[in-house]
Amino acid sequence: MTDSAALFRSVLYIPGSKTRALDKARGLAADAIIFDLEDAVAPDEKVAARATLAAELNAGGYGNRYRMVRINALDTQWGADDARAVADMDCDAILLPKVDGKGDVEALAALVPDLPIWCMMETPRGVINALEIADARFVHGFILGTNDLAKEIGCATVGDRMAMMTALQTCLMAARAAGIVCVDGVYNAFKDDDGLMLECEQGRALGMDGKTLIHPAQLDIANRVFAPTEAQIDLARRQIEAFDEAMARGEAVAVVDGKIVESLHIETARAVLAKAEAIRAREAA
């Protein structure tokens, strides 16, 4: 299952316990927000954070941003109660951390049977089981937890990320096979625009739908990198026009800029235009 009408260029983590941050998020240019009850909330604040977050979500004001709530893992003392609380919140999805397999998803689905489930892919076992997780009922998307994954693997976290490329691509392939969204992990150095740009460009080149972010200062770069460029939009329009003309002549292929255009290229071109239109609608709202 997929949230095809939503955008996920920028997916910003917001602490679920901080009223000021929750209010500020209403005016940020994020496509989606992860309201966090897990890592961003201290143990002695976790119970109170549920009520704080519920009140802010019920107050509204988040517009057409996709709203998901990350709970604590179900094997913690807070996880099950988090899930029950989120079931009554005004949100679009629930995000489960440290998913190892289909059984974790099924356990959560029993607690929130009517809520779309997203999975944090941040353990070696979870990566190995990525396809069965992606295929599980109610699963709408993957969020890559690259910090936890790097810790579990023991791999390097800087440079070109080749040390964890197998994990990134395994999760992405599973998501694509199941037709769900896959969002890249965070870039920790939030003041390093050049580094963020390179990692966003790498994620987009791999095929990721967007990037998770830890600071509002990262929003502009992620939104720009994961949006179609004017050149890509122009090419998509010309490909569709040329292909339609070829089909009218009874031909199965067209040529644009010296390159063959077949039906598979038209699917990509239409997806580019659909994303561009969704972005225009978001910016006009």
Rank of each mutant, 00 (worst) to 15 (best):
A178I: 14
A167G: 03
A178S: 15
A177W: 02
L172V: 05
G185W: 03
L198Q: 13
M164T: 01
V183N: 03
L198H: 13
M173G: 05
D194T: 06
L198K: 14
R204A: 11
V183C: 03
E199W: 03
Y187C: 02
V186C: 03
Y187A: 00
T170C: 13
V181Y: 06
L168C: 10
L172K: 06
K191F: 02
C182L: 01
A163P: 00
D193H: 08
F190M: 04
K191A: 05
C182E: 09
F190E: 04
K191V: 01
T170E: 14
M162V: 01
E201G: 08
D194I: 07
Q202H: 07
C200S: 12
A177Y: 07
E201T: 06
Q169I: 10
R176P: 10
D193W: 00
A177Q: 11
Q169V: 12
A178H: 14
N188K: 04
L196W: 11
D192P: 09
D194W: 00
A178G: 14
G207T: 07
G185C: 09
T166Y: 15
A178L: 10
G203S: 08
Q169K: 15
G185H: 05
A189W: 01
M162F: 06
A177I: 09
A174F: 07
D194L: 05
N188A: 10
E201R: 15
C200G: 14
T166E: 05
A167C: 12
A174D: 11
C200P: 14
M164K: 02
L172A: 09
D192F: 04
D194K: 09
L168N: 06
Y187F: 11
A163M: 03
M164Y: 06
V186N: 04
A178Y: 14
M164C: 02
G179S: 03
D192G: 09
G207E: 06
M162E: 05
Q169A: 08
V183D: 03
D184A: 00
R204K: 15
C171Y: 11
L196S: 14
C200H: 10
A205W: 07
A174E: 09
M162R: 10
D193F: 03
D184M: 00
A163V: 00
A163C: 08
R204V: 08
R176M: 09
L168V: 10
G195N: 08
I180K: 05
L198M: 12
M162G: 12
A177K: 07
M162P: 00
C182P: 14
A167I: 00
M165W: 08
C171D: 15
T170P: 09
N188G: 04
G179D: 04
